[in-house]
């Protein structure tokens, strides 16, 4: 349903992603693994339109070509983005942070399912986004992306800076979100245990290309671990 073909992304002269192909199936949770600096964030930023991509690149949602559209059009066509570092609006309240995601929809107030998934966001509604803990901000960032009603959710290192004790719980949440909202998810990760709990398929990125791919049924954890260690 979501197709990426010969994607090229560079910062000025330095090419970071070269000829990357990727296919995402409906309802799938796909892990993009890889050490720091391997191009995961660059990939996501180019998918959502924060970074432009080179000529010949194609990003297709179902049949709609998105590679030359601005971010907000991509969102309206079903892409949503939870960035690394979460990028909460620090001076907006929690509720207003969620409402920014509602802007492109018909909905006027925060839908109930958000608070069912993340009860803490209801309690914290009036607090400033900048005053939440890392874990709470992560939930907020996911909620904010989810209310845009995405078909594909991009999650960049959701476990970064999160207490190890709740990582497992987050992995389960991810599956709940997929089941409840029929959304496909691409998640960039370095934490293997998280990916093994949450994901259906595993890719490993190195130097801007995909160097390994395996399904859940045939996954070789040891091999992926080797890619992830320095």
């Amino acid at each position: 349903m979501f197709h990426i073909n010969s994607l090229n992304v560079s910062y000025g002269e330095s090419k970071v992603i070269e000829n990357l192909d990727l296919e995402l199936n409906k309802g799938e949770i796909l892990a993009v693994m890889g050490r720091n600096g391997m191009g995961k964030t660059t990939l996501f930023k180019s998918l959502i339109g924060i970074l432009g991509c080179g000529s010949g690149s194609s990003i297709k949602m179902e049949d709609k070509e998105l590679s030359s559209e601005p971010s907000f059009i991509r969102v309206r066509n079903g892409l949503a983005y939870v960035p690394q570092g979460r990028m909460i609006f620090p001076n907006l309240s929690v509720t207003d942070n969620i409402r920014t995601g509602l802007d492109s929809t018909e909905e006027k107030s925060v839908p109930d399912y958000v608070y069912e998934l993340f009860p803490v966001l209801k309690e914290m509604g009036k607090r400033k986004g900048g005053n939440l803990s890392g874990g709470q901000q992560q939930q907020l960032a996911i909620a904010r992306a989810l209310v845009t009603k995405p078909k594909v959710l991009l999650l960049d290192e959701p476990t970064e800076g999160i207490q190890p004790s709740i990582i497992k719980e987050m992995a389960e949440k991810l599956k709940t979100i997929r089941d409840m909202h029929q959304v496909s998810i691409i998640v960039a990760e370095q934490v293997l245990s998280f990916a093994l709990t949450a994901c259906d398929r595993f890719l490993v990125m190195e130097g801007g290309s995909i160097v390994h791919s395996s399904d859940r049924s045939e996954v070789d954890a040891e091999k992926i671990k080797k890619f992830l260690s320095v």
């Binding site: 339109g49 924060i50 971010s71 309206r76 983005y81 001076n91 920014t100 802007d103 492109s104 845009t148």
Partner: peptide, 15 residues
């Protein structure tokens, strides 16, 4: 307000 605080993120939320 959102655009002032983080332009790229605001676009990435559909605004």
């Amino acid at each position: 307000q959102a655009t002032t605080q983080n332009r790229e993120m605001t676009g990435a939320l559909g605004i």
